[in-house]
Computed example of a mutant assay.
Amino acid sequence: MQLQEIDKSRYRNHLNKVIGACIAALTIGSLGIAQTLILLFPDADGSHFHWNLLGVVISCSVIFYVLRRVKLHPFMVEVVYVWELKQALNRITRKMPKLKKAAQQGNVNAMLAIHYSYAGSRQLWMLDDNTITMEELAIWQAELDALAAKYQVSLDAADYDEGILRAF
Rank of each mutant, 00 (worst) to 15 (best):
K86F: 08
A148H: 15
A157R: 05
K100H: 09
N52R: 07
P42F: 00
H115I: 00
K101I: 03
A102L: 02
Y116W: 03
G120L: 03
P97Y: 00
M111R: 04
L40A: 09
L155H: 06
A34E: 07
A148C: 13
H48S: 06
L3W: 01
S47N: 14
M1G: 10
I114F: 10
D7Q: 04
R12G: 02
W83K: 13
V62D: 01
A142K: 15
K71D: 14
Q123W: 07
L26Q: 13
L26F: 13
Q141G: 09
Y65F: 15
D45V: 03
L40I: 05
L54S: 10
F64T: 12
K100N: 14
F64H: 10
V153E: 05
S154G: 07
W140C: 13
L165Q: 01
S154Q: 14
L54M: 14
E136R: 12
L127Y: 09
W51I: 04
W140Y: 14
V80R: 15
W83S: 12
G29Y: 14
A44N: 00
K98W: 01
A149W: 14
T131I: 13
R68L: 06
N130M: 10
S121Y: 04
S61E: 01
D7R: 04
V79A: 01
A142T: 15
R122H: 10
L26M: 13
C22F: 04
L99T: 00
Y151G: 07
S121W: 05
A119D: 01
A146F: 12
V66T: 07
R166D: 06
V79I: 05
L99A: 00
K8R: 15
T27V: 15
L54C: 12
Y160M: 03
A88K: 11
V108D: 09
A167P: 00
A157P: 02
N52G: 11
Y160G: 09
R91P: 06
A21K: 05
M126Q: 12
A24W: 06
A110V: 08
C22H: 11
Q104W: 07
A142L: 12
N90S: 11
V66F: 10
I164H: 03
Y65S: 11
I114N: 07
K150W: 09
V79D: 06
M134C: 06
S47H: 13
N130R: 14
E136T: 11
S30E: 07
G106C: 01
V80H: 10
Q2Y: 04
Y81H: 04
V153S: 08
I33T: 03
A88P: 06
I132Y: 15
N52C: 07
V56L: 13
R69E: 11
L72D: 15
D7W: 02
K98P: 01
K98T: 02
A110K: 05
H115A: 04
A149T: 13
A25K: 02
M126P: 01
A167M: 05
P97I: 00
R68T: 12
E162A: 15
G106T: 00
G29N: 12
F64Y: 10
A158I: 09
Y116E: 04
R166E: 07
G163C: 03
S117E: 07
W51A: 07
R69C: 10
M134I: 10
H73G: 02
